[in-house]
Write a protein that binds this DNA or RNA. Structure first.
Length: 377
RNA sequence: GUGGAUGUGGCCUAGUUGGAUAAGGCGUCAGAUUGUGGCUCUGAAGACCGUGGGUUCGAGUCCCAUCAUCCACC
């Protein structure tokens, strides 16, 4: 359930999204832990410490290993990974895109080759819903196809229509599975996903169609996959007009701090991105002054924290020089500290955005930080 | 002391019967990364081939000397 607390300038919204495992203050960033763990060695306790409200896991990866049946037998994903707060599961649809080459798409669904052991797998709408019901996440994402940009318009048309037909099947299947007596999380919600590339008419037509299905939330998918930032922003702006105002809006897989600020400006409530974790693992760290590469030699004897303006547990204790050494020596602690800092940065960014929305100063905040946070220094 | 082997970027190696700007890996330096394979990709710097002579049109390759390291023997 979504409650709008304040409509701000632009289309920015301050709200609350309530799930079976608690209420999320929006706009929010969802921390990506694909295989029920944040890569880099962060624990569920660490996630709480860095202010994570929602954890995101991946249907495809958990299906392959350890298996969603196993997770269900272990009491569901929350219990399995000892995380009490909300969880959103991605549908596996993105793997249709990211594992291109190993896949075959039909009306029924997609056959893949496992990236772990090479065995042939099939996931369609029903399979994806079964897996997500077994995991018992709070939000299950629709099984969709994310088409790369650029692709021929005819392909986008066909794929978008197929994604709609899949969504209808997803809705029916998930409702059935969650009505079963041993359902892990009967209150599990389904989010629909808007597609259509950067073709305005396809986007709007598809958005209108899925809005009619009256789902608990909606996502904008298929962005940040090859188009320019301006095309992405224009698409969000166009689509949000047709998204139900009383449901949460989720921009999938996005993005940089600047992308998030611009997304909020255009009415987005939820974000997720691998960037803070992946870039952290590569020693690319976010600061209020811009992005630094901690592996750079110039930080070898730098005694200052990663970001002097940061209050995270890492910055309160460790120096740039020390963390750089950990990276050079390939100590696991280096990854852990870097990822912790970056995730704290993202969650804190959302906190600042929410505060600015409440104070009515988001336009200034946007003007001050939208560009600088994405700049390499 | 005697005999043998080996010396090529920071490290490990390739380099034909002597032939053009001495090749590669690791490392270093730097860049990329958007619903995650700690993966991967891209670019750059860096060696006058232990040293000194010689043979030759031409030497990392052949010869002599010398230095260093390793092995075996006294």
């Amino acid at each position: 359930m979504y409650r709008l607390l304040k409509q701000d300038e632009g289309h920015a919204r301050r709200g609350e999204f309530t799930t079976p495992h608690g209420t999320v203050q929006t706009p929010a960033f969802m921390n990506v832990g694909t295989a029920a763990a944040i890569k880099g060695g962060l624990s569920a306790k660490d996630l709480e410490d860095i202010g994570c409200q929602v954890e995101l896991s991946n249907t495809y990866h958990l299906h392959v290993r350890p298996g969603d049946e196993l997770v269900k037998a272990m009491g569901g994903l929350h219990k399995f990974m000892a995380w009490r707060r909300p969880i959103l599961t991605d549908s596996g649809g993105f793997q249709v895109f990211s594992l291109a080459g190993l896949r075959k798409i039909t009306e029924e669904g997609v056959s893949f080759q496992s990236h772990v052991d090479g065995r042939r797998l099939f996931i369609g709408p029903e399979q994806s819903m079964r897996i997500q019901a077994n995991l018992g996440s709070d939000v299950a994402m629709a099984f969709d196809e994310c088409v790369k940009i650029p692709s021929p318009r005819e392909y986008f048309e066909a794929a978008t229509k197929r994604t709609y037909r899949w969504l209808v099947r997803c809705k029916k299947a998930l409702a059935e599975y969650n009505a079963e007596p041993d359902a892990v999380n009967p209150g599990q919600m389904l989010f629909g996903i808007n597609q259509g590339g950067i073709y305005p008419d396809l986007r709007v037509e598809h958005m209108k169609a899925i809005a009619d299905l009256d789902l608990p939330g909606y996502a904008i998918g298929g962005l940040a996959v090859g188009e320019t930032h301006q095309e992405m922003y224009d698409t969000i702006e166009l689509v949000q007009e047709h998204m139900p105002a009383d449901r949460p809006r989720y921009l999938m897989g996005v993005g940089t701090p600047g992308n998030i600020i611009e997304g909020v400006w255009r009415g987005v409530d939820l974000f997720d991105c691998v960037m803070p974790a992946r870039n952290g693992r590569h020693a690319h760290l976010f600061t209020k002054q811009g992005i630094i590469n901690l592996k750079n030699e110039k930080y070898a004897m730098d005694e200052s924290p990663i970001d002097p303006a940061c209050g995270c547990p890492v910055c309160r204790r460790y120096s740039r020089g020390y963390i750089r050494h950990l990276f050079k020596a390939q100590e696991a602690l280096g990854l852990r500290l870097a990822v912790m800092h970056n995730l704290w940065f993202y969650n804190h960014l959302m906190e600042e955005i929410r505060a600015a929305l409440e104070a009515g100063t988001f336009a200034e905040y946007r003007a001050k930080y939208s560009k600088i946070l994405d700049t390499r220094i």
